[in-house]
Write a protein that binds this DNA or RNA. Structure first.
Lengths: 233, 233
DNA sequence: CAGTGGTCTAGACCACAAG
DNA sequence: TTGTGGTCTAGACCACTGG
């Protein structure tokens, strides 16, 4: 048993982690309450609280008022993905960024797009296709729909110079969104744009965003074959 | 301007968010320091601190000692993915879970696997192949390497009954790991196991975990075509 | 050097939910 | 009802880093 006091929340967190890993506290076990731990560790309850709250946030503990704190039976691991602006992602790898607007027009989208954006009325949206390049080579094909009603200013922007991605990030903050990841076979158009073969496996990110339940945009990002999205857990 | 005091951190967070969204504080702007905001909001500095810390955590603010707090120029969005135990993921959709161990043997892995696990010496590892089913249909093909030296007890477990996934979660806690997502074309073996066609686009998760820099396991999860990983942001 | 965020403390009250 | 975590407060000291 370690003697001495744990005088910061990281130390408390580390000690609790140890006890979970060494199975002193096993999955499903109820651990002592904050006040008792504070006394044992020789620190304030707020310090224990912060440590335990952090561990609960990363899925290792389950905490409920009155019921106390338990070691999670199945620690649901949480991976945090950073969704950077594409230009930054490319420049971050030390590559030269390129951008090319392929088409821009207003039209009524197919119903799957409506569904994803949770729109009901059949208004025209702005439809963009663009290609992002890394060191001059195709990197990502962007297929985007923008709800003009939600972000009128977009009609006055020259999207052949600044990508819709960046413009929206800076000018159309969203309050909620959802994101999905899939693998798809490249269709003819995608294959041509990304300089790959039809049918190749493409990593796809689909993202929708809303501002107070008003749809802003829906975008499909189709990455060049071999793309790898990576993070730490 | 809202009158009255903001007496909890969520309210402070909401107010700060408003000011960012209404562009009262623009990207790049230095915002008032914690003490000033506490006075303005009529709450303790700790309350402001917690609100701002949370916003910084979600990428909307950049905070540095002495330099102060700025509105992030490019709010790097963070998506949090839950990595559940596979059985729970399937049962959570209301489907019946099935599991089948396809093969289990000890052998020396190919060097790409060594690289991923950051192993140097050429010891034998345990190699598992297993199929997870949802309502009796193939859902996920698991191809896993386990470092026996790191988790000896695994040799005594009957992995045809309990999936390695679940056993490891409960018995081999890790301290760090990394995870990657890609799209790949199904090879012959995968196609056969997942009952799909060779060359179909497969969503793949690769995960490695370590316990204090000792490699525990490396696993490739190959999902049936059409799989969609989704989350909110 | 000095101003900023990072954290701790001791005490207090509150919100929730299990019994 | 009552024990638990959730949070706030006022004050304090510290760590970092920009000028």
């Amino acid at each position: 048993m370690t003697e001495g006091t744990l005088n910061n929340w990281q130390a408390v967190q580390a000690e609790v982690l140890q006890r979970i890993r060494r199975r002193i506290w096993k999955p499903g076990d109820l651990i002592p309450n904050e006040a008792d731990l504070a006394q044992e560790f020789g620190c304030a309850r707020a310090t224990v609280n912060r440590a335990l709250r952090a561990l609960a946030g990363s899925g290792l503990l389950d905490r409920r008022r009155r019921a106390g704190t338990r070691v999670a039976i199945y620690p649901v691991r949480k991976a945090t993905l950073d969704i950077p602006v594409i230009r930054h992602e490319i420049e971050g790898k030390g590559q030269r960024y390129g951008y090319s607007l392929l088409s821009q027009l207003r039209k009524i989208p197919p119903s799957p797009v409506y569904a994803r954006m949770k729109l009901s009325n059949k208004a025209k949206l702005m439809h963009l296709k663009a290609l992002h390049l890394a060191d001059g080579k195709p990197y990502l094909f962007e297929d985007r729909w923008i709800n003009i009603a939600a972000v009128r200013a977009v009609t006055k922007v020259d999207l052949s110079q600044q990508s819709a991605n960046e413009w929206l990030v800076e000018n159309a903050p969203f309050t909620s969104g959802d994101i999905a990841f899939t693998a798809e076979a490249a269709d003819v158009e995608t294959a041509e744009i990304l300089h790959c073969s039809e049918g190749e496996a493409i990593f796809v990110i689909e993202r929708s965003t809303w501002s107070n339940s008003m749809a802003i945009t829906f975008v499909r990002l189709l990455f060049v074959p071999g793309y790898r999205m990576q993070t730490e857990i």
